[in-house]
Design a binder for these strands. Sequence first.
RNA 1: GGGCCCGUAGCUCAAUGGUGAGAGCCGGCUCCUUAUAAGAGCCAGACGGCGGUUCGACUCCGUCCGGGCCUACCA
Length: 1183
Amino acid sequence: MFEKVSADAEFIRGEHDVLKFWESGRIFDKLRKQNAGKPAWSFLDGPITANNPMGVHHAWGRTYKDAYQRYFAMNGHELRYQNGFDCQGLWVEIEVERDLGFTTKAAIEELGIDKFSNACKQRVLKYAARQTEQSIRLGYWMDWDDPDTLRKLSDGIGRDEPVTITTPSGKTETGPAHQLVGRLGCPEWGGSYFTFSTENNETIWTFLKKCFERGKIRRGHDVMPWSGRAGSAYSQMEVADGRKLSVHKSVFVRFPLRGREHEYLLVWTTTPWTLTSNVAAAVNPDLEYVKLKSKRDGAVYYFAKENLDFQRLSREFKEGFGRPEWEWPKDVPKLKSIGQIFKEQGGFEIVDTITGADMVGWEYDGPFDDLPAQQQAGGVPEDDSLADKTGISCHRVIDGGRDSKGKPNVVAGEGTGIVHIAPGCGDIDHKLGAEHGIVGIAPLQEDGTFTAEFGDFTGRRANDPETAELVFEKLKEKHLLVSVESYPHIYPHCWRTGDELVFRLVDEWFIDMDWRDEIKAVTEQIRWLPEAIDGKERELEWLTNMRDWMISKKRFWGLALPIWIDDETGDFEVIGSLAELKERAVEGWDEFEGNTPHRPWIDKVKIENPKTGNVMSRIPDVGNPWLDAGIVPFSTMHYNSNRDEWKKWYPADFVTECFPGQFRNWFYALLAMATMMDDSPPFKTLLGHRLVMNEEGKPMHKSDGTAIWFEEAAEQVGVDTMRWMFLAQNPAADLRFGHRNPDKRVTLETPDGPADQTAEGVPTCAVVSAPADETRRQILITLWNTYTFFVNYARLDEFDVTAEAVPVAERPEIDRWVLANLHALIQTANTEMREFNVAGFLKEAARFIDDLSNWYIRRNRRRFWRSKDAGDRDKLAAYQTLYDVLVTLTKLLAPVIPFLTERLYQNLVRAVDKNAPESVHLCEYPQADEALLDPELSQRMALAQLVVNLGHGLREKTSLRVRQPLAELRFACANPAHLAAIENLADVIKEELNVKQITGCEHLDELVSYTYKPNLKTLGPRYGKLLGAIRKELPELDGDLLAPLRSGQAVTVTLGGESVELGPDDVMVGTEQAADWAAADQDGVQIALSTSLTPGLVQEGMARDFVRHVQQLRKDADLEIEDRIVVTYSSDDGEVVGMMETWGEYICRETLADAVNRSDASPAGGKIVTVGSVEVSLAIAKS
RNA sequence: GGGCCCGUAGCUCAAUGGUGAGAGCCGGCUCCUUAUAAGAGCCAGACGGCGGUUCGACUCCGUCCGGGCCUACCA
């Protein structure tokens, strides 16, 4: 028999119980075994950064992943269940550096790259273990590694003693930890994939080799965004993620023109440090320039005419910089125009206007020609081919030229129309420098400080504000400083550390992206969801605009780029596999062997240049981390090791990730790499979703303590509740979760005992989520109450689930109704889940749960309460129907709320049938039985519900409480079929509305009057302008003229002076009530409720009031349902006394009273209650 | 700068070239209830502004105002 169920669901405790059950029962393993060999459904997991514990925002995407996997598993598919951890790259390095207290790359080299790489591996393993535990708590079913094994490996890294582990597939392996770690996620072992695995790195080599063979790998000598802190250049993707509004000191400087006494170029820059490295000045030849004479010192300035009065950043001043958080900084004054600046400096006059073309070729003196860098032949670093030139010798005005789209590089507007060119400090500058054959001066070292050739600047940081001050000071000494101001603009920062980037001339490696059209063609073949986002367009836009992919990074922990170079000739080769490398190796292989292909071990291996016989070394750079994540459709599906297996799983059926940023990151890397590898889409459908926000739609921040840790939400809100909330959310919109109160500490009840901080030592705080509370109250609690109702009565009645089923056709209509709705829900579930629209399914499911509880059970309570009678087929039908509904619903919702459904299933099914599948998650997903669908019945029931609603409304309007019985309800329907439908359900309506009689009528003419309104939709097209008159006059016509319309006949009337033919569809009929009847209508159903009260009805109403009050007293006194009582009341009122004569027996029966006694005095402890309109003192006592 | 989306009730969101613009939450009121921490009903409350097309516009078009998103190397 079923276990007794308590009224309190204890959702969270239940979740922990279920987790234990799944683990001890090895349910997930059984599911995999059960589905082995069945048709594959391929999900590809986007790797999560294994660098920190999960927050609540990670749980949204992971819930999608789990729910769809569970759904397809229940539908008989084999799945891979492979979670992924993103393990390599700067983000790990930064955190490890922080732990070690390092601030420079030199410190890492001092420690030893091997030790540093090991520390990175350790950190990744540590947090992979942590995230694994958290994911398990979420109910996320994956082929997880044992977290303790991961920690054991983490501890073993860097030690010589071998460790022994058990893999998820059950194998026992022994070896040095670093060797084992390189094989994590391999097919023989199972478990999560780690992007640092040898397989993953090696498959990227395969990709890069293909790029190389197509001639797409190139070395670049370019000015790139650079972080001095990280000692690394940043790719376009990273820069896009790290742009911030910053305020810099910008400066107007004058460059003295050679051979023109006291005449100057006016130049402006936001990066004063680059002035040290100025080589040339660029103008737009087509632009007009003014010659302005300053009254203060008689100096003459040249700059773009348009800029004289140009209101700089006026729009930004008013509207900000394009994002809500990028408003104009409060402490920055509005910018002055150049005219204003000169006016404030004593006034000016315009002497002349010339064109840029006139200026090209003019020579000038640079602002820092005293620096050795400016005087060095060939520039800095020296370029032998330009040995006849110095920075100083190149100072002249050049044509700024045009970009690839034909737009001029130099324009008027911001600045002065004369752009200072420093080929060692800017991207365009560098290109212009090369075009014009002028030297470059690259001032910065790896750490972002000036090199030795820069005098007082040497050793200073370029982006240090003090460096800018030094520039201003020196300019002032030289009388070259015109004006300094605070200038807000969007400036690139390190997206991870927030450090400002500088621009530095570097050698980096690129993949040429001139094959972007191939990637776009692949992109077109993919289904991008949700449609409202139009992900395809976003991706195509990125693919159209992206630049070549910078894949190198001058760092330590990451993919070892497989590029070997001949230092003497510059020849380079890309190696495609470790086997190839071994074959080509001429030295160092022995030293490398047994290590993972990371720095420093891989760097030992040298090959020979076949052309020259020189030894080639690997470039020291590591790879862009998106290579690591982009290769996973190949590396994790064994592209290199088992091509048939790969074909079984590739392309993935489904991918889902949080989309902001990913169009240029993971999605891009996947698409580019799959196009190069196989010219095919790596996945068929992508579901993107937005972000988790606080209740105001604002981001939650780690820094101010408002970011919610996963455990805080799990143990306070409950995982099932969260999952429903996540899955019911529109993925195209931000989810407003709620907030964390950092000042309100709470102690969480966890299975391991109370916890007041996370594993990382962060205090646990109160989490408030209104949408979660609503979800729990309206859905989970309602479902639970439905379940407890069934179980507790079924126990009393000893309901036997094995009893022969009452044929559905023989069950009452309301049973068939709920079954019909159930099967409609099954249909919805299957179609929506296959469309990856779980929210659409849950909307209907919520409605069904509500109907089940508040209509089906509410209406059928008395069938369950009836005393036991073996021959009661109607009662059996009720039990069988409700049981069937609950069990099916449990299975339907299993992918969504796996914990609660498991609890229900265990008690509803397993407790009575030991042969049933051991877990709800081992069941087949329900399929709709079309024979049970009955849309017509659903519609009829909806009509009954409509009548009840209308009736309640009328009672409210006429102030007639439902306890007051009424004599009659009459109704009529526009559609005759509805009449019978409602009559069929008359008992339901009678009881619900407390009326004695329900009568269906052809019409309610004698009870109501009718109003007529034109149907504009049908009449408009036919009568056009006449409509105004029709609208006005039709309601005023004599009702008799229009009466035939109500019986479906057409009439012809004169309206607006013209004859108008009206069919039944052309006129809408409304009702108004007559005396003693209250009427209402909706959707073609009219009802009229008799409002006249006979003395008998009044008396009965009083009796029911009396009963109600006694019941309340029973409840207040905490009496048991079967306790018998004696009722005492006092009242002289004749109506009450009369009522008691007629209804006393009824009252006794309903309240289990042995007697109802009248007393003259108010009984002790009596309560004053209102019976009808009379006050009565009432008391009860146990008899 | 370029491109896109959105302005509907106090809040979160629907729908629609046609008469009374829905729902949930919140609030006020009433009712029902021996499964329910539930439920039912009523009330209050909205188409950003201005033009145009149309018999009729919240809907289509234009424009302004206000939000948001994407994109961009403006020195």
